[in-house]
Design a protein around this nucleic acid. Sequence first.
DNA 1: TATGAATGAGACTTCATTCAT
DNA 2: AATGAATGAAGTCTCATTCAT
Lengths: 212, 212, 212, 212
Amino acid sequence: MTRGRPERKQRANGVESRRRILDAAVEIAGERGYEGTSIAAVSAKCGLPASSIYWHFKDKDDLIAAVIERSFETWLAAVRLPGEDEGTPLERVTLMAANVARSLVEAPDFLRLGLMLALEHRPVQPSGRTVFLHAREIAHQRVADVVRTFFPTLDETAVRTVTTYAVAGSDGLFVQREIGGESVDLVALLELHARTVYGLAEGMSGGGEGGA
Amino acid sequence: MTRGRPERKQRANGVESRRRILDAAVEIAGERGYEGTSIAAVSAKCGLPASSIYWHFKDKDDLIAAVIERSFETWLAAVRLPGEDEGTPLERVTLMAANVARSLVEAPDFLRLGLMLALEHRPVQPSGRTVFLHAREIAHQRVADVVRTFFPTLDETAVRTVTTYAVAGSDGLFVQREIGGESVDLVALLELHARTVYGLAEGMSGGGEGGA
Amino acid sequence: MTRGRPERKQRANGVESRRRILDAAVEIAGERGYEGTSIAAVSAKCGLPASSIYWHFKDKDDLIAAVIERSFETWLAAVRLPGEDEGTPLERVTLMAANVARSLVEAPDFLRLGLMLALEHRPVQPSGRTVFLHAREIAHQRVADVVRTFFPTLDETAVRTVTTYAVAGSDGLFVQREIGGESVDLVALLELHARTVYGLAEGMSGGGEGGA
Amino acid sequence: MTRGRPERKQRANGVESRRRILDAAVEIAGERGYEGTSIAAVSAKCGLPASSIYWHFKDKDDLIAAVIERSFETWLAAVRLPGEDEGTPLERVTLMAANVARSLVEAPDFLRLGLMLALEHRPVQPSGRTVFLHAREIAHQRVADVVRTFFPTLDETAVRTVTTYAVAGSDGLFVQREIGGESVDLVALLELHARTVYGLAEGMSGGGEGGA
DNA sequence: TATGAATGAGACTTCATTCAT
DNA sequence: AATGAATGAAGTCTCATTCAT
């Protein structure tokens, strides 16, 4: 019973506690989804009692929403967009795709949890879902900007179609990777996807037969 | 107890009860996922007491697995593959995509619930997940067969890549539709996807530089 | 550890269990009020686990409402109204008052809990309060009938005033008894009240100066 | 820390904070009773953190006791007893009753909360109950004094009976008003009560057959 | 004179499941 | 082929209170 360290972390530190709670929650929620994330489990993993979690977050819904928000920011920071002027357009797009792929492999919790929430259709939606959809909208806009940059002649309908297709493919390949594990080379697949989308946009840009 | 007119439906009918339970469960599980599906909720929706559900299914895990299985069959039945010899290859592939799209709009529960299960990573996975992955494997094989039929010169690695890419894109577009609702034209997007994949396979088939 | 009686009352008996729960709840709620009545305490007192209470009652609110309802019936049964034709009118009224007093001493839970609920003004009222007010309305009507019987010339406004005054005095004297305990002779006080109200009604009946 | 303009109210003011806490507490306790009054709710209503409440009051019990005490004083201040020598004795008594009625309509919290506490019978009684009973004893004495003044020939037993009856009737009519809301004319009813009690005392004073 | 943060206990309620009938 | 009743475990959340600052 000789307690090496006194361990009576009496020093109240809200910021640090909040971080610990989010760290624990992002891990559990990323694995088990909304319902599967119990406050007791988060409490056990972060070392703070359940009642302390309620000091920092109004309720479970609020906690999950904060998890989504923070993990989106983490993920955004992990996507390092390359400098503006390296290589051909196609090479640059491919590089972006590889960066996205790496960020999704490194910090997959955001998208995994987000997709779980997005697929649910509860009568009363968790607010984390709203936060996710909002984050997703931001990502969508960024992709759209890239599309517009590389294919300035595309009309807005075509931009939207290409962007939607690009994002959806990315989602699908991420799911594939989540199911297949490390045997799925997400970097290679997203690079392939980038080239494909590039070709698609090129086709819509040159010949007027856009669509969908 | 022999009542005058027999068979007035009150007298138990196992098959019918089982169907009612599955009908209720597929709806709830498709909305709320595995953890979100409580036996009590299924009981309330189907009108049978909870204990009756346990007469038909070993436990909740078994019920969800059965839900996945049956909704896969429902979905399979909804995919009406077109006759073999109408139109050009590209037209035929596009037609298939449209059919898949329609089936996913009509019977989305299978894929929605399945993806939710697939994205989870719990210590002990629900057997419904296994059932889903198995069904998915079947679908994957069917797509692979189509790819081989249309592009007999593709090597197996390329077939796998194209198939994976085709399925992943389909998943991603399905997610898009689940998020965006009716404003997303899944038929058009999957037709576009079909043409894109067709072009991709063609490219890998003709020039030898396949990949991933 | 030698368990004398097997005590595994496996024999499911809903009616009996429900009664045991209500018996426990009426006692606790009569002493401690709505908020003071915890499901855990009821569970401990009746021997059934908390979850079993929820088989018989939707929630705590439902339980308390049932408690009020049953204890009202118990109390009503305890008020033995005297035969129609014994003694003078004043004697008969006094006898009624004594009977009411005895019933309130014997089964005070109904009125004690009811008054506690009635005095509360929560944003969302417990449904037990509604049940109590309804029961009280019934009691009010009975008293009004007695008033009308003995003073047929009273107009309805006067009947209402006399009845209200009679019931209010009864409530107040009951409170007095609850505070003062056995040192308060409720029977004597209610008999006095009966005579007083009788005189009041007589006065309003003869001279036309009713009021309030 | 010496700010330019001092005393801009931000700088703590114990008396004012204490008042705000009591203001919030009297409202909540008057609505919900002892158990229904949570420190968190008081904190939310008064805008001070829960820990500040514990700076001003030892514990919840202490807070409620202070609430009772202050609201009793508020109520006492609201009872404006009339000058000694206006009108006939009956008129003066009636005027007193009207004043009491008005004070109970204006400041009902004291009596409402007090009666809730008085009706409870917990193993360990809140000290607010004691405070209430003490305040009530004071009120009782005042009424007894009035009775003695107007009916000097009454013996002490009769004085006690009349006083008890007077107070009980007042309580009962107050409850009636709390239940019935503004549709109950408390002033009229208490005036009626005053006349009735006056008559009762007169009867006991003249003929020697007092009672109870 | 306050207060941000923490905390163990306990609140109500639902959970999946069982069992005798 | 079913079901009424029961139940221990676990769920989310609130409680009154403390303590270092």
